[in-house]
Amino acid sequence: CHSECLGNCSQPDDPTKCVACRNFYLDGRCVETCPPPYYHFQDWRCVNFSFCQDLHHKCKNSRRQGCHQYVIHNNKCIPECPSGYTMNSSNLLCTPCLGPCPKVCHLLEGEKTIDSVTSAQELRGCTVINGSLIINIRGGNNLAAELEANLGLIEEISGYLKIRRSYALVSLSFFRKLRLIRGETLEIGNYSFYALDNQNLRQLWDWSKHNLTITQGKLFFHYNPKLCLSEIHKMEEVSGTKGRQERNDIALKTNGDQASCENELLKFSYIRTSFDKILLRWEPYWPPDFRDLLGFMLFYKEAPYQNVTEFDGQDACGSNSWTVVDIDPPLRSNDPKSQNHPGWLMRGLKPWTQYAIFVKTLVTFSDERRTYGAKSDIIYVQTDATNPSVPLDPISVSNSSSQIILKWKPPSDPNGNITHYLVFWERQAEDSELFELDYCLKGLKLPSRTWSPPFESEDSQKHNQSEYEDSAGECCSCPKTDSQILKELEESSFRKTFEDYLHNVVFVPRKT
């Protein structure tokens, strides 16, 4: 048989008469490798580009789960590009990614509803959504962080984005990388972005840091009482949809009607710091009717980097990364020049730590249904340095008659930039024990000054392991946590139920 035959053949030295091919099969003959313009397919066939392209389009058009959109890589027609490569849609070739590779997620039936953290986790790592997304989240724990972890990498949506009755959302900033909504599939009414009845939605994105392009379709905003109209108009300008909307697409009466839409800028007039305090004062603000001013709200939190936005980490279910302080308005003076500047002394802060701070007014709604208010920009203030805590785990070892090696770990709280350490030492008198000992005694162990690591005695271990207080009263049991108490109650309830079950099964009433 021919060298490319495997198993047997019907005619000697003829690659077209093989029972099976050793390498690849091409047009009725066995070959060692697939010549151009053919590609290896499933490690035994040679196919042309049209064959591989037909497989790709067949799966793409069917949208069946589990099928493969075949691509070409290293002269092979394979189910998908290997790690580190992405497909070129024009020629199906796998090309190296520039940075992290995109991950295209194809949605069944063309859309997916995100109504819980669990459903959001199914899209973790996706960068391109081939379909439409509907966000409908009523509640949950730590929602802002969970949504950002699972949806934060999405850069492109081919269909539309719909935010509907998501009472738990305060902001859409968890879509931190969303840059493009194509609108290839539109919501009824030709809408590519749809926001309806979101009672706590206050911000779409921080438009000073976020760009969003909507290729096709219109915007729809109705019944978002805490979303200011200025935020919607800003989205029109940034996304390129200005002029597409009709009169009733953006409701003037049901958007922002319960919001404090600040239209003035508060400026800080005085800032002073110490290692654990920050004193702030800002310019006074009074609405047209000074009785509408209820006070100020001061927001602050630790910020290692200057990239904080107002609604980071917030949701309507209680999660809030900001510390909020309510401040009463100052006494009002008739003389504008003698107006008191409101302020606040922030206490209990960490030394040498940068804080993000902003302040906003708290006002009631005027009778004319106009909203007044003022808010400052987010500023960054760093507390002063102070003395560091003591170095940890000092170790001293003498390696000769004239040297001592000293080692330690950095302090747990540096409280500033540590530039150097101060080492103090003092000579001590020799131990009298060394002169009084009889060095001729056998088995004498000389006193040693070398360091030995501390260890816990058996008594201390027994005390720590004991669940009861000892007789001397030195140790006591740790208080039980809520989960331990709940577990004990469940076990007790189970024992009672099981005992009742045994009584009912074992003891049967005697027939009379």
Rank of each mutant, 00 (worst) to 15 (best):
Y194L: 07
I357M: 01
Y194R: 11
Q245I: 08
N248G: 08
L279H: 15
I188R: 14
K226Q: 11
E111G: 15
N141G: 13
Y160L: 04
E148L: 06
A303W: 07
Q339E: 03
G159N: 02
A303M: 05
S398K: 01
T254Y: 10
L186E: 07
K267C: 09
I379V: 13
L298S: 01
P410V: 04
K337W: 06
K301A: 13
P351G: 10
Q199V: 13
I214D: 01
T185V: 14
R291G: 05
A120Q: 03
P330K: 05
P330S: 06
L349E: 00
I232S: 02
S158A: 13
I157P: 00
E246A: 05
E146G: 15
N307V: 12
T241W: 10
N320F: 11
T386G: 02
T361V: 04
I378R: 03
L279D: 02
H341D: 10
N224Q: 08
I378E: 01
E155D: 06
Y223L: 14
T386S: 09
I327C: 04
I114G: 00
K218Q: 04
R179W: 09
P391Q: 02
F268Q: 00
K277N: 15
C126R: 00
E184W: 12
P388A: 05
Q199R: 13
V397M: 12
L279I: 05
K226N: 13
I188A: 09
I327F: 04
W205Q: 01
V104C: 03
G189W: 06
K112T: 04
L298Q: 00
Q199I: 09
N200M: 07
L345P: 05
L169W: 01
N224K: 00
G313M: 13
H233D: 09
D335L: 05
A145T: 08
L294W: 10
T118P: 12
L201V: 06
W408P: 04
N200V: 08
W205H: 07
N334M: 07
R291D: 13
I154Y: 01
K242N: 11
Y372R: 13
V238S: 13
D384G: 14
I114L: 09
K103W: 04
P388L: 14
L331G: 15
R332V: 13
C317K: 01
V325R: 10
E109K: 10
P391Y: 02
L147E: 00
K242S: 10
W352V: 08
Y191R: 08
F311R: 12
K375A: 06
N307L: 12
Y380T: 14
E246L: 08
E146F: 04
Y300W: 05
P304A: 15
L362R: 06
V324R: 13
R138T: 05
N387G: 08
Y191F: 05
R138W: 02
C126L: 00
D276V: 01
R247W: 12
T213A: 07
T241Y: 11
F299H: 11
S376R: 00
N334C: 05
L362T: 05
N198D: 01
L219C: 13
E237Q: 12
Y167S: 02
V238E: 11
Y223T: 14
R179T: 12
A259W: 08
S132L: 00
P388R: 15
I134T: 15
N263G: 15
F221Y: 11
D384P: 10
T383M: 03
Q258Y: 15
Y270T: 07
L161A: 02
T215S: 11
N130Y: 03
I278L: 08
H106L: 07
E156Y: 07
S208F: 13
S171T: 08
A374D: 01
K209H: 15
G318K: 04
G189R: 04
S366H: 15
E302V: 04
D257L: 10
R202F: 08
P411W: 01
S192D: 01
D367K: 11
N198V: 03
F358L: 03
I405T: 04
H106W: 05
L169V: 12
P330M: 05
P394I: 11
H106R: 04
L107Y: 05
I404Y: 01
E310Y: 05
T213W: 05
R138I: 15
P225W: 04
R370N: 15
N307R: 01
I114N: 02
F299Q: 06
E231V: 04
Y160W: 04
S230P: 15
L147V: 04
S173Y: 10
S119V: 08
Y194A: 13
E156I: 11
S274W: 04
R369S: 07
Y194F: 12
L186H: 15
W352Y: 02
D393M: 13
G256V: 07
D292L: 11
A195S: 09
S132F: 01
G313I: 13
Q258W: 13
P304L: 15
E111R: 13
K103P: 07
S389I: 02
N263D: 04
Q203I: 05
A251R: 06
N211G: 07
E148R: 11
T323Q: 14
L219A: 10
K360Y: 02
